[in-house]
Design a protein around this nucleic acid. Structure first.
Lengths: 147, 147
DNA sequence: CGCCTATTGCGAGCTGGTCGCAACAGCAGC
DNA sequence: GCTGCTGTTGCGACCAGCTCGCAATAGGCG
């Protein structure tokens, strides 16, 4: 159950000497239980539902800190604000330029690419930070085939 | 020669009924002749070298318009400002998270990925809009292998 | 319980980019 | 070469998303 996941997370952070404040716990809670690709603002409002006085900068700072600790990861799905995940849930994204929907990429999808790049260029891929854009099946069907 | 490339471009735009202003010509000139991955600001300063009174918003508007016309394309190489290319030069990018350098991806690299995604998800990839991050060979060697 | 120090709330500030508006300048037609 | 229509420009105000400095606050160890 989800309260459990949060507690586990909190416990392991505490073991690392991380101070657990209300704001920090609420941010983690929102990440564990909330909708799939929350932006900082969405997280802020979840947090404020429980603790109305939490300031936006606190959420940003907590996300930064949690990212530095390797617990959280952020991704850019397009031109808007960044979205956040628990690092354990990290995955690639395919975002449709027409409808804006984000598909989770099957985990092996980038594996092949990563191996190719590594072999040919010595480059180690981190394919999760930016989404890859394109057209989803539905939108591609409707689009007047540009050139 | 490069003046030629610019002239060709200008001529073909004019044929499409696009009005060629000083600012617009200078933006194109900077794209044709300048450094590989210019940001809007870099373009602005190239333009201003020839016409000091050109305003930043003019450069943005021209880049938007040229993009709508399919002549120019922009790419996000990381967290900073967007970078611009002539559409004819479009290519994928591999950006090193440690040193920030951008490698041009070999053109066939994404082909395989694109085919896989298409077949399995019906998703048509546009792999050029966002860079893919990672660690280049040199930096990977120096990095203390995180987990 | 008390102390040390990390964290917070707050507001100002920053970057990268957009917008509305009146003045201006391409260029087609004469 | 001049004229007029209309697309562009310069300008400043504005916006989103995020960062920072500071004094006050609150975890959590002893």
């Amino acid at each position: 159950m989800s309260g459990d996941a949060l507690d586990t997370l909190v416990a392991s952070l505490r073991r690392e000497g991380v101070r657990i404040t209300t704001a920090r716990r609420l941010v983690l809670d929102a990440l564990v239980r909330g909708t799939p690709h929350p932006t900082a603002e969405e997280l802020l409002s979840s947090v404020r539902a429980m603790a109305p006085d939490v300031h936006a900068s606190t959420v940003y700072r907590n996300l930064d800190e949690l990212e530095r600790l390797g617990v959280v990861v952020h991704t850019h799905l397009g031109h808007g604000p960044a979205t956040y995940h628990l690092a354990a849930d990290a995955h690639g994204h395919l975002v449709c330029e027409a409808c804006g929907r984000a598909l989770e990429a099957p985990p092996d999808l980038f594996g092949q690419l990563a191996r190719g790049v590594k072999r040919r260029l010595g480059f180690t891929l981190h394919p999760y930070h930016f989404a890859v854009l394109g057209l989803c099946a539905g939108c591609a069907a409707q689009t007047p085939a540009r050139t």
